[in-house]
Design a protein around this nucleic acid. Structure first.
Lengths: 138, 138, 138, 138
DNA sequence: GTGGTCTAGACCACA
DNA sequence: GTGGTCTAGACCACG
């Protein structure tokens, strides 16, 4: 997992780390159980503050996306992509998604183009299909 | 136009106002040329400070979504939904959209459910279709 | 003289009127002694408030660019383009010009392009050359 | 960077700050990557409110002239003077320049004097030439 | 009446 | 330490 950060972005760094992890999990780069670098190593690699990485990992943990063990460090939660109560707890992606779609439409992007982008993005995600293979489809 | 704000949200109030206006434009509640309440009136209605409304309107103006006129106040920009260069300037909705889709998938939401939600949201937007009906697509 | 106003511009209307008159004088559309429409007529033509036109005319009068008589209305000052003390009084076009040039350069416009635009603009002004013809050059 | 403000000017303070920064960038006083004082420090130095500095910096950021970073504060954008799409976005310096040139001519300033001033101002700008010398024009 | 500017102080988020 | 947000009140410019 190669993290590319934009230190000048208005998006907080810890949020960027969290977002990149989420995307990596979705597209299959980081499968359930995969290890994340230690907070200190990650901080060194990205040339950022150790506490910032810590904050990102803590956020991911609270979202139920990773597990943190004292020994093995941070790993992707085994239930990721499984619709467990904890993961489904937050449904606020819906209103946020609606705002983004509205913004694109208001900016004059044809609905077909938006829909096509959504389709291509979803097609690029391996998480759902991996499940189908393993347990024959939910 | 009825704005519902969540004063306890971590999303800044001025951002919420901006988002609600964008959604209203997308779903046709606020058509091109429609008037927004004056900054001070809006502030009274929402029981917030007028400077906060001011910031939201200023943001919308800079995005090319509204026009601000000293005598008639703020109105929806006539070119909204038209793919003018100014409106299309920012294409960063793509990466932001990808993150949100990834988050939903990671949370275990089936891709079909995400796709369905996107479709229903886009179907609820009247902005694109209104043009086609009225002038056959200028 | 045909005035085109942008009522949504951040530039005040009275300033826009003043600017258009100045440009018309420079390019020869309005020569020394030429009549301007009456404030009331102008207000009707432009569909704006009478006081706004009044303010623009007053500004032009204070700058020494027009004369206002009770009988003949507003006319371009006969000394316009002549470097009279009143007209030369304000030299603040220099710092303002410098800022604009700096802005263009900072935005990446090649100096040659800026210089070329200045030359073409000056070439389009008939005011200086009219003098040369009449009194053989200063 | 020494900013001189005219608190009695009709030009808003935040605009003056923005203009001084733009000029400093153009004449090479502030090169790409150079640091600006923190908003609060700058406010103390200029004996004005920090919100006013904030507004100036925000304006410069939106114009693509500076970058604002939570840890290192504000720095001149590395692409300044490079004709990137964002910087070239606004071409409205042309009409504003034309008005200023017209004003000078109307005030009786000989075209040659105006042209000479423009030339000297552009010659005083190091931004374009610095590139040529350093890397032969990227 | 409208929006814009400046000041001021408190609180929070980020690194 | 940095910047960002919200609140508050006074004053001005515009139409």
């Amino acid at each position: 997992m190669q993290l590319l950060l934009d230190l000048d972005s208005e998006v907080p760094i810890y949020q960027q780390i969290r977002d990149r992890v989420v995307e990596s999990v979705a597209d299959g780069t980081l499968g359930p159980g995969a290890s994340l670098p230690s907070t200190r190593q990650c901080a060194v690699d990205l040339a950022i503050n150790f506490h910032t990485v810590n904050k990102a990992y803590d956020l991911l943990r609270r979202e139920g996306i990773i597990r943190i063990n004292r020994k093995s460090g941070a790993v992707i939660h085994p239930d990721v992509g499984r619709a467990t109560p904890e993961l489904r707890a937050s449904e606020d992606w819906r209103p946020r998604l609606r705002v983004l779609l509205a913004e694109a439409v208001v900016r004059g992007v044809p609905e077909a183009e938006v829909a096509a982008y959504v389709r291509s993005a979803l097609d690029g995600f391996a998480l759902g299909r991996a499940d189908e293979e393993k347990d024959g489809g939910d």
